[in-house]
């Protein structure tokens, strides 16, 4: 234990308005902490430099799942256990429910929040491939108001995002229109539980008359931040799933991803496995197509 609690202040204003006022009064001075599964790790390792923290835990506006006919809106401080326990998410957004089960352990899932997972900005974030595949939108809030951006534009560089210093991540919006889509999500981690992704791929596609009408591929641990594989998608959009298509998609992916060597894996391995996961998805898609 390398942190010293006495040199950090932590306040819990209790309401969203009070938190936003605090951020507005001193933009950039306050570090939000929700379930603490990242901040407290940094604290114990002696890496937490933030002198002032504001708690988002227990603020009801931030921990709600609202279901509308066309969309699901998930409060940023919704925990992964909340997601796993929600019947509609399991039914309509199964990849997100699956990803929620990947987060650490039960104890971590009860504290870690969806918003925290995104703001933390790890290239290996467990929820990101699913959110990218589902075309999520992110909503920010501040005393100035609210705004929405596509999740695929949220991360801007390694551990950087487009939140302004006085803004909080408020909610994640997900469309409910994937009942006919073929869906795929696989994480290749260091082990089965308590694992960090070496590679993960989320994918969703809609076939029409044997051709791919819609496709999105979300990847983790293949770039400095979670990213859509746009060029790979382009290599597949409008095509039928011939061996040639699969081969060219594989080539597009290998050209597009930029994994690194680190203490958990190698760039070479990550590239190859990412390509294999894409194959696995496309072969699954082809099999589904073959069965009318």
């Amino acid at each position: 234990m390398r942190g010293n609690a006495a040199i950090h202040d932590l306040v819990a204003p209790g309401t969203l308005g009070a938190v936003l006022d605090l951020l507005a009064a001193e933009p950039g001075a306050w570090t939000p902490i929700a379930g603490g599964t990242e901040v407290m790790v940094a604290f114990a390792a002696g890496r937490l430099t933030a002198p002032k923290l504001v708690s988002l835990w227990g603020i009801p506006d931030l921990r709600a799942i609202e279901v509308a006919p066309q969309s699901v809106v998930i409060g940023a401080a919704t925990t992964f256990l909340d997601l796993r326990r929600h019947a509609l998410i399991a039914a309509d957004l199964p990849l997100l429910a699956k990803a929620a089960g990947w987060i650490g352990s039960i104890a971590n899932q009860g504290r870690a929040t969806l918003g925290g997972n995104l703001v933390n900005g790890s290239p290996a974030a467990d929820s990101s491939p699913a959110l990218l595949a589902y075309d999520a939108e992110i909503e920010f809030i501040s005393v100035r108001g609210r705004r929405r951006v596509p999740y695929s534009e949220f991360h801007t560089a390694y551990k950087r995002n487009c939140l302004a210093p006085d803004e909080l991540l408020y909610a994640i919006h997900l469309p409910r229109r994937f009942a006919r889509h073929n869906q795929y999500l696989r994480k290749v981690g260091t082990r089965r539980a308590m694992a960090i992704a070496k590679v993960a791929l989320g994918a969703i596609a809609l076939l029409e008359n044997g051709r791919i009408r819609e496709i999105r591929l979300g990847a983790a641990s293949l770039a400095p931040y979670p990213m859509r594989l746009m060029q790979t998608e382009a290599a597949l959009l409008g095509r039928s799933l011939t061996d040639d298509t699969i081969q060219s998609a594989r080539r597009a992916l290998l050209a597009e991803v930029k994994p690194i060597d680190d203490i958990r894996s190698t760039a070479d391995y990550r590239r190859r496995v990412a390509a294999n996961l894409l194959d696995e998805f496309l072969l699954q898609l082809r099999r589904v197509e073959a069965v009318p």
């Binding site: 609690a5 932590l10 306040v11 819990a12 902490i33 379930g35 603490g36 599964t37 407290m40 790790v41 114990a44 923290l53 708690s55 835990w57 227990g58 256990l81 039960i106 104890a107 971590n108 009860g110 504290r111």
Partner: peptide, 15 residues
Amino acid sequence: GELVNSCLVPVLQAD
């Protein structure tokens, strides 16, 4: 009611 790692909970959040 929830299982937590108490090393990751700042005590204020246990109020």
